[in-house]
Amino acid sequence: MQSLKVIGLAAGAVMLAGQAFAGATLDAVMDRGAVRCGVSGSLAGFSIPDSQGKMQGLDADICRAVAAAVLGDAEAVEFVPLSAQQRFTALQSGEVDVLSRNTTWTLTRDTALGLNFTNVTFYDGQGFMVRTDLGVTNASELDGAAICVQTGTTTEKNLTDYFRATGMTFDPVVFEGFEESVTAFVAGRCDVYTTDASGLASIRVSNVENPDDYVILPDIISKEPLGPVTRNDDDEWFDVVKWTVNALLNAEEMGISSANVDEMLTSDDPNIQRLLGVAPGMGESMKINEEWAYNAIKQVGNYSEIFERSVGTDTPLGFQRGVNALWTNGGLMYAPPIR
């Protein structure tokens, strides 16, 4: 599998040289009347169908926002569930217009694979969870621990890198699937479980009998900035996706939400007027309509609304905003101005 993946990706990068989509994606989306959006389809909080089969989550809502901005209808999205292996090919070959599938922004993906990451929509990082009764308080005490990890992921590689760098040893207990690895951890097959911090939080609330028996260590051993991806040969479309996400962040910063966006249309603040298309020019420069940001905010909500609805404290996942808060609140979310 692993070698196949490498061959596939390498071939993808080679083939890409011969392809040209410049400016074509936006036209194709307009003609089709729908945005084709690659998602995971099985990751709670990011993209997962609910009991009615409707795709829900942060990644899915980013797609809806793009559809609302370009086409004026947040439901004009064709969600394409993609496995981790096929996601980049699906984007390169034009099967999807945008990939919004909890994909980590790394140098090799941005360059060698011919992709463009537009923004970071969620800052994640790999952490550790241990049983409370072990009395471990930080990762430096994990020397010699048995660690449960899912194989074939960057998680496994980060883990090895971290222990090599700190000169500690560990005993890997690897599993192919998510359920098996979590079940083994809960059954006491290993002392430590490692995956992205968002994943740890969801395991702690939903897979164990008593969440207080487990503690998530404060150490984060890797950076996992997740965000939407487009092809690197279509700047026009890249801009549309990038500025749609920026609009959602700016809307939160300016206090514009789906509830009050109509009142905000009469605002005297030139920043708000530009964002909502009252003062025209922004949409035109992207070759889309002037109500792009208005539609996205009205139909999907600002970044805060999307976050709280998908993964926030009122959801079973219960994430704090933390590093994903706006820069004005001590977080990392900083969107360039709309002007």
Partner: peptide
């Protein structure tokens, strides 16, 4: 895997056969 990952890369740009 070949049908879903490799094959689409050999098609001309813009042509995609359903998954």
């Amino acid at each position: 895997f070949m049908a879903s990952v490799m094959f689409p890369l050999f098609l001309p740009a813009g042509v995609s056969i359903d998954k």
